[in-house]
């Protein structure tokens, strides 16, 4: 057998092995991202000086591979409306697949991407809820008078799930 023929056979064999391995891997593993939107609103109304949690927005995620797990979970809290001076303290993210909620640092900026860090390797399909915590510094101004109540809301939030089923 000539040297060239030997190299051709060797190359072909390596190519077949590589393709077989790639095919096997792709049959077992997939990754992807899923953006889940909501038309819901997180909102609260507080008396001046008070702190509280907002109403929740819930996202239901299904149809991903049964064993898909989260590699990254991001939250966009949506568009802001407010009256008075209401200071956002943090975002709370919870999942049906995790035993506790996570407190995510957030300055209250609208339409921003917030990263969580406690969901890595948890099941991706499930139910997720978000809410925020805020403190009313000063009430709204109405007809030249400062009221005792301020309010804040975030609409159309969404979550982005990065998943992998071989993790």
């Amino acid at each position: 057998m000539s040297k060239n023929k030997f190299l051709k056979i060797l190359f072909s064999a390596l190519l077949v092995i590589t393709m077989a391995f790639t095919a096997t891997t792709s049959a077992y593993a997939a990754t992807g991202t899923k953006k889940v939107t909501s038309s819901g609103t997180m909102s609260l109304a507080l008396k001046t000086g008070q702190t509280g949690n907002s109403s929740e927005v819930t996202f239901r995620v299904s149809g991903l591979p049964a064993n898909a797990v989260i590699t990254k979970l991001e939250v966009n809290p949506g568009s802001l409306k407010y009256s008075g001076a209401v200071l956002t303290n943090y975002l709370t993210v919870a999942s049906s697949n995790r035993s506790s909620a996570e407190k995510v640092t957030w300055n209250g900026k609208e339409n921003t991407t917030l990263s969580t860090n406690g969901f890595l390797a948890s099941k991706a399909n499930g139910t997720y809820t978000i809410s925020f915590n805020a403190t009313c510094i000063s009430g709204a101004i109405s007809h030249g008078m400062i009221l005792d109540i301020g309010s804040k809301s975030y609409s159309n939030p969404y979550i982005t799930i990065y998943w992998d089923d071989s993790f």
């Binding site: 939107t37 949690n53 819930t58 995620v61 809820t129």
Partner: peptide
């Protein structure tokens, strides 16, 4: 695939 959302509570007890 079904993806939706609503206002039901999940973790808040």
């Amino acid at each position: 695939m079904r993806v939706g959302n609503d206002k039901s509570l999940v973790q808040s007890r």
